[in-house]
Computed example of a mutant assay.
Amino acid sequence: MKVTPTAIPDVLIIEPKVFGDARGFFYESFNQKAFNEATGTDHQFVQDNHSRSARGVLRGLHYQIQQPQGKLVRVVRGAVFDVAVDIRKSSPTFGKWVGVELSEENHRQMWVPPGFAHGFLVTSESAEFLYKTTDYYAPEYERCIAWNDPSIGIQWPTDAVPQLSAKDVLGKYLVSAEVFP
């Protein structure tokens, strides 16, 4: 497994060793011991989630203000532009974002630690998105930052207005959102 830090060093791109031939491919998508050693973390995952979305759907930017979730995310069908925003007030990268393409072709994964808002935009006809979380979903603590907050300035790879859920339409700008200390 190859681990590459992003412009925000706590957010990591993970590329598994893929063994392929004319028949297809094989790779180990997750191994707790290898993940902890490669990332220098000691997180345990408690929940797996799977979503399917059409082209132009944007999900996010989500986080839980209590029971914060670290997320290990990947795409098994299609492609997305995946984004993490640092919302830890004491961090030198507070309000900064990183984004990367995750696709069924590149097999990349992104580690989004607790203390970050997370979202993605589907760039293929559809995409199936998997994520492991370090804490359980707690809807009472879920919060959303606006996908188009000008103070963050995410450069989403689209000129069209994305398709949003009703709750994502109500996302707050970072300046008025609940954030981590």
Rank of each mutant, 00 (worst) to 15 (best):
Asp42Ser: 12
Val73Glu: 00
Asp42Arg: 09
Lys17Val: 09
Ala22Trp: 03
Ser90Glu: 04
Phe19His: 13
Asp48His: 08
Gln67Lys: 11
Asp21Gln: 10
Ile14Val: 07
Asp42Pro: 01
Ser53Pro: 01
Val73Gly: 00
Arg77Ala: 12
Val85Met: 06
Val76His: 03
Phe30Ala: 04
Thr41Tyr: 07
Pro16His: 06
Phe35Tyr: 12
Lys33Gln: 14
Phe19Met: 08
Thr39Ala: 01
Gln44Tyr: 05
Phe19Gly: 05
Gln66Trp: 13
Asn36Pro: 14
Phe30Asn: 10
Lys33Asp: 13
Gly40Glu: 10
Val80Cys: 13
Thr39Met: 07
Asp82Val: 02
Thr41His: 03
Val80Leu: 10
Phe45Trp: 04
Ala34Asn: 11
Asp21Leu: 10
Glu37Pro: 15
Ile65Ala: 04
Glu28Ile: 01
Ala34Gly: 08
Phe19Asn: 02
Gln32Lys: 13
Ser53Arg: 07
Gly70Trp: 01
Lys17Cys: 08
His50Asn: 05
Val85Arg: 09
Ala54His: 15
Ile13Ser: 05
Gln69Asn: 09
Gln66Tyr: 12
His43Glu: 01
Gly78Pro: 11
Arg55Gln: 12
Ala79Asp: 12
Tyr27Asn: 11
Phe19Trp: 12
Gly20Met: 08
Gly24Ile: 06
Asp82Cys: 02
Asn49Phe: 00
Phe25Glu: 11
Phe26Pro: 14
Gly20Arg: 15
Leu61Asp: 00
Gln64Asn: 14
Val75Trp: 01
Arg59Tyr: 09
Gly70Thr: 06
Ile14Glu: 00
Ser90Cys: 13
Arg52Ile: 02
Thr39Phe: 07
Phe30Lys: 13
Ser53Leu: 10
Lys89Thr: 00
Phe30Trp: 08
Ile87Glu: 07
Gln67Phe: 00
Arg88Asp: 11
Glu15Trp: 03
Ile87Arg: 01
Asn36Gln: 14
Arg55Ile: 03
Gln47Ala: 02
Lys33His: 14
Val57Thr: 15
Gln44Val: 10
Val18Ser: 08
His62Val: 08
Glu28Arg: 09
Glu37Met: 06
Arg59Asp: 00
